[in-house]
């Protein structure tokens, strides 16, 4: 049971962070299907920091560096999506898909090149990076808590306040609901959409680090982040683009996601179902939920439509 809680908390934070990221982007009017790729890049940058500086600087400094690296790289990478979707008015889904594929390729090439150069260049390097995740984890009684849980709760409250209690949040939402109206009162739609996508890049990058680091100490970048970014999209839809509902949805999905982690070591093993079946669960659950919630979905009205100042 404690194991279940542990993994649920772990995944809930990740899914929530990334889904919040997706929410900012979609509230501003840009569909961000590149979340998976942004997570990979963010995780890659953070893990690189960990394996380069691990042991040379003190724990908290290392954590801060890794978090900053993942956030910054997520923001930079999301600019690619913003550029194609907002400035060039390209198809947002295709651009996002390209960035997902690009991210995995970049991660594999970068990690292999890095391993190749450090292993005296004998070729055939793997795409795995090993690091120490100790500084991220604190034990409280029987449960271990990682730093991302605390960060996640803070960011959740901040997101909600920003979106619904500040004028900036109102402007961002206006750009996603009715950009022409927003423009008519002097809001620069392009700027706010850029802002929305970059915020989602920051949260997505952080989510990538939070997905990879706390649970294991070796990561094989050939799998990217194994579909977590897409699950976060489902969490966002289930959460109806509202911060606290997203948090609830994230916990719900995280329970399903953790089942495959604890399948071998707990009472679940006695059912005789294999790990693959449990791995399928979150995806099946999201399909069922999407089928029932999509009919009366409250998606931002202008999402996915490039804003053209000249269009009527």
């Amino acid at each position: 049971m404690i194991l279940l809680i542990k993994y649920t908390l772990l995944y809930a934070v990740v899914l929530m962070l990334v889904a919040l990221g997706g929410m900012f982007s979609e509230r501003s009017g840009v569909i961000n299907i590149a979340l998976e790729g942004i997570m990979t890049i963010g995780g890659l940058a953070g893990v690189f920091v960990l394996s380069l500086f691990g042991g040379t600087v003190s724990g908290p400094v290392l954590v801060a560096f890794a978090v900053l690296a993942s956030v910054a790289s997520g923001m930079v990478y999301s600019l690619l999506l913003a550029f194609s979707a907002i400035t060039l008015k390209a198809d947002q889904t295709i651009g996002g898909t390209a960035l997902n594929m690009l991210a995995t390729a970049i991660a594999i090439v970068a990690v292999k090149a890095f391993n190749n150069s450090s292993a005296s260049g004998n070729g055939a390097a793997s795409a795995k990076l090993t690091y120490d995740n100790g500084p991220f984890i604190y034990s409280v009684g029987p449960i271990t808590i990682n730093i991302f849980l605390i960060l996640g709760v803070i960011l959740l409250v901040c997101s909600s306040v920003f979106l619904f209690k500040t004028k900036w949040g109102l402007r961002l939402r206006a750009c996603g609901e009715h950009p022409q109206a927003a423009d008519s009162v002097g809001i620069n739609v392009y700027h706010w959409r850029y802002a929305g996508v970059v915020i989602s890049g920051a949260l997505g990058g952080l989510g990538g680090l939070a997905y990879i680091v706390p649970s294991v100490s070796t990561w094989n970048f050939e799998v990217g982040v194994a579909g977590a970014g897409f699950l976060a999209l489902a969490v966002m839809i289930f959460g109806q683009w509202k911060p606290y509902r997203i948090a609830g949805a994230a916990v719900f999905f995280a329970v399903f996601k953790s089942l495959s982690n604890i399948a071998d070591s707990t009472v679940l093993a006695s059912f005789g179902l294999s790990k693959n079946i449990y791995s399928m669960m979150p995806f099946i659950a999201s399909m069922i939920i999407l089928a029932f919630t999509s009919k009366n979905s409250r998606a931002p009205k202008a999402e996915g439509i490039p804003y053209d100042k000249g269009a009527r």
């Binding site: 198809d91 295709i94 390209a98 594999i108």
Partner: peptide, 15 residues
Amino acid sequence: IADLIVAVIIYLCAF
């Protein structure tokens, strides 16, 4: 690196 080239090409195809 070949995958990377292909991915860059799709990104460009988007516009």
